[in-house]
Design a binder for these strands. Structure first.
Lengths: 224, 224
DNA sequence: GGGCGGCATATTGCATGCAATAGCGGGTAC
DNA sequence: GTACCCGCTATTGCATGCAATATGCCGCCC
């Protein structure tokens, strides 16, 4: 984690992190000179990082000059979750057919920690989101398909994931944790159908929460 | 088409095109100075283009220095086609619910032209591939989901698509064209289930051909 | 003759400078 | 008072130069 990266890589990762966590909310303008000054580098690596963020779809042109953090529409979010439900359900199917005890043990650790946090009020949304992301990334990697991991990274790396739990009631957070345990059960049973369907349901439930009365769409629409 | 782009954009598009069409086959080393000389620009826009290609997953680090065109494994290709089958089937479902007569007319034109070419020996694989790509892109855009188009572009932009028909028997090429017409029928009927299932079958058939005796895997393996 | 070390070179990462341009603000004319 | 025009500045695109570093070759030593 404390590894040292080339400047361009470091700038890219940090900017992406800030966008994903909404430290840089949608619509924020990114100016090369200012970012370069912030990171203590020249404009060259910053420019390269911005190119990559553009390729990722995380930032978009701002009028005729400069770029800004992408503003997501409700439709973008809904479509993203539906694609994610498809791909991640498939990942769970593959994982059910090949995950080993090491994967399962790690998944259990994550799910247990998340379950404990779900019982603590007020909810630590940030930490819960991190554990949730880590859980799903682990399922994907347990599927053993490099391409699938790549595709899901691209499809999913939408800032929303880091905020999804603010849209959840405490009850829904607990339900989410239980679903994680169910996914683990399905993987352990090696039941591909079960793993696929519970995972799809799990992600569509998150989508439903996002569309609900506490949902993020209003906030996103406001920002957009 | 003859629009003038900034240097970095132009270099990116042209390099990507060459990679997709195998003018730059897997394993080819890309050196900034040489590319810069070819395009008559400096190394800066070339470097940015290479960053984007890396983000796309089209090129990968070459040992400790430089980059090369990505070598695809058989597993990469199979997984790509399975993800594509999922996402593109969903696109067809959406398209069935909303495509209009303009879309359908354009799809018919493409499918008709492709059918005619399928009867001409020897097969013009290059042109057939272009029409096929255009057909599927049009279905995706008819789905009306910007996110879906983005995701499929990323998932699908694997060089193989431009070569898939060399793995097909003339008989299979004709079958492909008939499937395109069937997809159009399903869209016109507004039958989402039909559109989804015929599209999934269509893409899995292509995968099967790729895995067959005339398949590309051997060639890819040789290149990789 | 083979292996190892060092140098020359190829190649990239980054900084900086220059040119182009879009947007803005002020000043002036009507 | 308003509208238009001109120039200024902020900002980006691109070129070039410099430094770091891997790589391969050649000679030397064992």
């Amino acid at each position: 984690m404390s590894e040292t990266y080339p400047s361009a890589e470091r700038v890219y990762r940090e900017l992406r992190r800030r966008i994903m966590t909404w430290q840089l909310p949608p619509g924020t303008a990114l100016r090369e000179v200012q970012i370069a000054a912030d990171f203590g580098v020249s404009r060259t690596p910053v420019s390269q990082a911005i190119q990559r963020l553009r390729a990722d779809g995380l930032i978009e042109p701002r009028g005729r000059r400069g770029v800004e953090v992408r503003r997501w529409s409700q439709r973008d979010l809904e479509d993203t979750y539906r694609m994610r439900a498809n791909l991640e359900a498939w990942a769970a199917r593959l994982a059910a057919e090949r995950s080993d005890e090491v994967d399962l043990a790690r998944l259990r650790t994550l799910a247990d920690e998340m379950s404990e946090l779900a019982r603590v009020q007020p909810l630590d949304h940030e930490r819960i989101a991190e554990l949730n992301i880590e859980f799903h990334e682990l399922v994907r990697s347990a599927a053993g398909s490099h391409r699938l991991v790549e595709a899901l990274t691209t499809v999913v790396h939408i800032p929303l994931l880091h905020r999804v739990f603010t849209a959840f009631t405490p009850r829904q957070v607990i339900a989410t944790c239980q679903e994680h345990h169910t996914i683990i059960d399905a993987l352990q049973a090696g039941d591909a159908d079960w793993a696929e369907s519970i995972t799809r349901a799990h992600i569509l439930a998150a989508l439903n929460a996002l569309k609900g009365p506490r949902g993020l769409f209003a906030e996103v629409e406001r920002a957009g």
